[in-house]
Design a protein around this nucleic acid. Structure first.
Length: 802
RNA sequence: GCCCGGGUGGCGAAACGGCAGACGCAUCGGACUUAAAAUCCGAAGGGGUGUUAAAACCCCGUGCGGGUUCAAAUCCCGCCCCGGGCACCA
């Protein structure tokens, strides 16, 4: 494809202003109590080897326009950028090539920084953070220790995916649906219990749920978080096995206790051990091999085995059989249920398949009836409607010490450790005498050891276990021999609190200075992809609340307002992917059309939140628009055309309409319609002879947040000192927007019959008379009776006739 | 299965009770040019009546079917399709 002739010298202008902004620290933020603060945050990227994707600049441009706009409106804006740089690809590359992940990471960050800077975003680059920088992760480790000291971090044996072929732990997403290993296709993948670090996020479940009401987030994201937390109210009830052991269950329907005809234990339930029975053993082993997917989606048909044992129902002392089935999950409730097939779809299916008794105890519909109704055949609660029945039976259980009202959450504690090299070391020492001992805070950061070989050790130990010089250490408490924790933190850790570090990135004595934190928090606007709807946002909120409880931060919630930018699809309306060959490279776009055209096109494509396909011809349209703007100011030799003529009233009106529309729309992030209005303005002025300064100068300021390089250049050529970044935003004059006449639509029965040009302040009566005497109206209502005349001042007259 | 979004010209979209399709792309016509590109000016939802041509006028149109209203893309009810998330949570 031949190089297009440039429509304006963006290739000169853009680097010029990027350097100007960097050299002059134009966008450096300082605490300034005289101004209203505004903290606008982008979700920082993982600097992958593939470089920037066109999806990244979408959100970044949106926040950049908003920040530039707000600066001109007098706000003190904090707008930083950084790198979420720990992650698997660099580690895998290290395993394959022996290159230290830090080298790969550094190289990728340089690429990302160059690409991001080539788009002219107004970040305060002095605040750049990198999660892999020891000066950064020192504080990630410090926060972990605060969690640990507060009893929110603990160790437990929990099952993780283990691949015998790879001799390594696999992440959930590395296990295929068919139970094979996604990395090498090995078949010997199963869950095996391993010691893990876990964070007690469930302790914050209630507040994480309740405080969602405080934040201005998309309702869908809040809903996803609510569902993830999954609060449900019910009761725990103690059944007894025949040999006297307690078998505790959780139920949301204690009112159906009299309908329990059998019990089910999850295969992993500890009590299952007691039933030495080959069928049970076989079932258990098989269940351990099934992937989560098989256990849930693929396995429509329920399976299970009878243990041979019985439990006693505490409400009626009835003996009911105990089964093991994998439709009961160990991770929820107590891992055991009382099955009430008459009133639970799953139990009903199971009971039907295995011929178990189905006993109705709630009246109200066909079985399985899961709704509310009236209790029947239920002893002391017979005859009560469901809500009362629940209350009464729960009170009775409590009085008998057989159970109690309980709230349960789907949310599980956060599995925090990874059997990986490229992550923050968990700052804990294991000592035979003292147990787990935190690394003293003054010894942080605890850095990763240099290694020759980054591959997993093969005996379920993380790669760090091979760095014996590093692992063996003194116990900080007793001075005896100790061993360092060899698990590392997950990628989420660094991104849990980066928004706080931006506030005070160089601070060596604290993760953030109190006064600065108080000034800048909370984040006023947070923009990023919807893929982080649950985990990143939930984990951040959790850490933030812990820091809040410890008095380290001043707000209960980190992100007051959240917006998800929509996905950008390929030109073929499919997800951009190498395999489709439809990936657009930002570098190519910038080289050919310039950053300003790129930015404006991405904003013009449609509403920020919408998913929309890329269209290179659409991009060219915006490029053409910027060329038109350029020619409004300069002739072919770049000579300024602007004069000091007085603009016509009509053009002044367009200008002020444009100021109003661009102001209002930018404020609510409706960038596409703001750009459309600027196009209308340019179309109007292009058709005129004069190039009035009074018209064009305010326009440059309106354009500045959108096409900042071009605007700065024009501003300078207009004879101003750079930069315009803090020039006051133009104000529109209401008086200039007023029309003297207005076009009124005349409808008959809702159909437009004519249009009238009338004075804006025409009295209603006159308007009605005009409408009724109108020739076309008379035609339309001929032979009909006029029933009603509706007059909407300044808009229309509608005559209902029939 | 459940919970969110969303269906408007050839395409991206705008309008969010009051003239449907602003703005842009693609298309077509004109000007400029030896010619093209670029640029500028103009046309354009579909169908019909009309006329030398135009003007003008009429009808139909916002996924489908109902409803509310003087007036519905917009509000209500029921369905269909597309995208995203969750998924045996007791």
């Amino acid at each position: 494809m031949p190089e297009l002739r440039k429509k304006y010298p963006f290739d000169v202008i853009e680097p010029k202003w990027q350097q100007h902004w960097l050299a002059n620290k134009t966008f450096a933020a300082r605490e300034d109590t005289g101004k209203q603060k505004l903290y606008v945050l982008d979700m920082f990227p993982y600097p992958s080897g593939a470089g920037l994707h066109v999806g990244h600049p979408e959100g970044y441009t949106a926040t950049d326009i908003y920040c530039r706009f707000k600066r001109m409106r007098g706000f003190n804006v904090l707008h930083p950028m950084g790198w979420d740089a720990f992650g698997l690809p660099a580690e895998q590359y290290a395993i394959d090539t022996g290159t230290h992940p830090a080298i790969t990471t550094c190289k990728n960050i340089d690429t990302f920084r160059r690409q991001i800077q080539s788009l002219g975003f107004s970040y305060d680059w002095d605040r750049e953070v990198d999660t892999t920088d020891p000066e950064y992760f020192k504080w990630t480790q410090w926060i972990f220790l605060q969690l640990y000291k507060k009893g929110l971090a603990y160790e437990a044996e929990i099952p993780v995916w283990w691949c015998d072929g790879c001799k390594a732990v696999l992440a959930n997403e590395e296990v295929n649906a068919d139970g094979t290993c996604d990395r090498k296709g090995h078949k010997e993948v199963y869950r095996r219990p391993l010691r893990q670090w876990i964070l007690r996020i469930t302790k914050y479940a209630e507040r994480l749920l309740a405080d969602l009401d405080q934040v201005n987030w998309p309702e869908s994201i809040k809903e996803q978080q609510r569902n993830w937390i999954g609060r449900s109210e019910g009761a725990e009830v103690d059944f007894k096995t025949e040999d006297g052991a307690t078998l505790r269950v959780f139920t949301t329907r204690p009112d159906t206790l009299f309908g329990a005809t059998y019990m089910v234990l999850a295969p992993e339930h500890p009590l299952v051990e007691k039933f030495k029975n080959p069928a049970v053993e076989a079932y258990r082993t098989a269940a351990a091999k099934k992937s989560e997917l098989e256990r849930t989606q693929l396995e429509k048909e329920k399976t299970g085995v009878f243990t041979g044992a019985y439990a006693i129902n505490p409400v009626n002392n009835e003996k009911i059989p105990i089964w093991v089935a994998d439709y009961v999950m160990m991770g929820y409730g107590t891992g055991a249920i009382m099955a009430v097939p008459a009133h639970d779809t799953r139990d009903f299916e199971f009971a039907t398949k295995f011929g178990l008794e189905i006993r109705p105890v709630v009246e109200g519909g066909d079985l399985p009836f899961i709704g509310e109704g009236t209790a029947i055949n239920s002893g002391l609660i017979t005859g009560l409607p469901t809500p009362e029945a629940k209350k009464k039976i729960t009170a009775w259980l409590e009085a008998q010490k057989l159970g109690k009202a309980t709230v349960n959450y789907k949310l599980r504690d956060w599995l925090f450790s990874r059997q990986r090299y490229w992550g923050e070391p968990i700052p804990i020492v294991h000592c035979a005498k003292c147990g787990t001992v935190p690394v003293p805070e003054n010894e942080l950061p605890l850095c990763l050891p240099e290694m020759k070989d980054y591959s997993p050790s093969g005996n379920a130990e993380p790669p760090l276990a091979k760095a014996t010089d590093w692992v063996n250490c003194k116990c900080p408490q007793c001075g005896g021999p100790g061993k360092r924790e060899t698990n590392t933190m997950p990628q989420w850790a660094g991104s849990c609190w980066y928004y706080l570090r931006y506030i005070d990135p160089q601070n060596a004595g604290a993760f953030v200075a109190k006064a600065k934190e108080k000034y800048w928090m909370s984040v006023d606007l947070y923009v990023g992809g919807a893929e982080h709807a649950v985990l990143h946002l939930l984990y951040s909120r959790f850490w933030h609340k812990v820091l809040f409880d410890l008095g380290h931060v001043s707000t209960p919630e980190p992100f007051m307002r959240l917006i998800n930018q929509g996905m950008i699809l390929g030109e073929d309306s499919r997800k951009m992917s190498k395999s489709w060959g439809n990936v657009i490279n930002p570098d190519d776009v910038v080289r050919e059309f310039g950053a300003d055209a790129f930015r404006m096109y991405e904003m013009f494509m449609g509403p920020l939140e919408a998913t929309k396909p890329w269209n290179t011809q659409g991009l060219e349209g915006l490029y053409r628009f910027l060329g038109r703007v350029w020619r409004l100011f300069c002739d072919e030799d770049g000579k300024l055309l602007v004069d000091d003529s007085t603009p016509t009233a009509a053009l002044m009106k367009v200008l002020h309409q444009t100021i109003k529309k661009v102001t209002d729309d930018t404020e609510v992030l409706a960038f596409n319609t703001a750009i459309a209005q600027m196009m209308i303005f340019v179309n109007e002025v292009t058709g005129q002879e004069t190039r009035s300064r009074a018209l064009l100068e305010p326009f440059v300021l309106l354009l500045a947040p959108y096409a900042p390089h071009l605007a700065e250049e024009l501003w300078e050529r207009l004879g101003h000192k750079p930069s315009l970044a803090y020039m006051p935003w133009p104000q529109y004059l209401e008086a200039l927007l007023k029309e003297s006449t207005v076009q009124i639509v005349v409808q008959v029965n809702g159909k437009v019959r004519d249009r009238l040009d009338v004075p804006v302040d025409i009295p209603k009566e006159d308007l009605e008379k005009l409408a009724l005497t109108n020739e076309k109206v008379k035609e339309s209502v001929a032979g009909k009776q006029i029933k009603k005349v509706i007059i909407v001042p300044g808009k229309l007259v509608n005559i209902a006739a029939g």
